[in-house]
Design a protein around this nucleic acid. Sequence first.
DNA 1: TTCCAGGACCCTG
DNA 2: CAGGGTCATGGA
Length: 278
Amino acid sequence: MKTVISAENFNLDYTLDCGQVFRWQQCDGDWIGVVGGHMVRARQEGETLIIDSDLSRDRIIHYFRLDDDLQDIYARINKDAVMARLIKRFRGLRLIRQDPWECLVSYMASSCKSIPNIKDSISRLCRLYGDDLDGYYSFPTVQSLSQTTETQLRKAKLGFRAVYILEAARRVDAGDLDLEKPFTQDYEDARGLLMEMKGIGPKIADCVLLFAYDKMGAFPADTHILSIMREHYNTYLQGTRRTGIGTFARNYFGNWAGYAQQYLYYSRIAGNTGMTLC
DNA sequence: TTCCAGGACCCTG
DNA sequence: CAGGGTCATGGA
């Protein structure tokens, strides 16, 4: 089924290559991915987004955050020459509304790995535990991961992260952790809930809050963000540690600081995302 | 060989 | 609370 969506202030390449998602591949000029268990083929022609998928039009708009008023967001976060330049360079980069479970597991798998390696682990995970969708694989369900063993999980090259992911799957499966609850909580409470899980610290919690739970002020501070913030905003930081950068960023950029974060992040890693062509 | 990669945990002072 | 070792794994 083909869906055509008029989308201004949208750049599909930047959106899928900026390091927020790990499963999309470029193929003959199209992007191919799996969203909510459905294959999706996407391409952009000017201000038109062309989708070939079973997904409804509303779900596509929801996934790509085409309901965000990007021009208004730019006006809010455009506080200085650094951000002005990045908005100009990456205009149309939108955050994506990821599935909470996929986002949670993906970022638990991300700690201390390069983006190509994260993609490789997640690809293996899907191949091992997901459903075969004509050569592509769905993301593993909570149940499929909760029933495996640490030894088996490690075959996805997850290393020390495997035990954390296994425990998370079992807690969610047992009803000990409600993945819907963070939607109903404010940023701080939701963050506290996520960080109760082993393997989820401040940075990964912020990633999941920003990319899956609509907490747009979340400002994940990894090594790259720490570095670039010291480079451009050191006079404001005044010794602020990595754990305090998020608070500074929300004060400085406002409630949509998460968008600013992704532009800063992409400026550091563009070209190093191991974009895979099929 | 050493260092780093979208960190978190645990122990120590 | 701050600092360092440790945890797998692959690539430069």
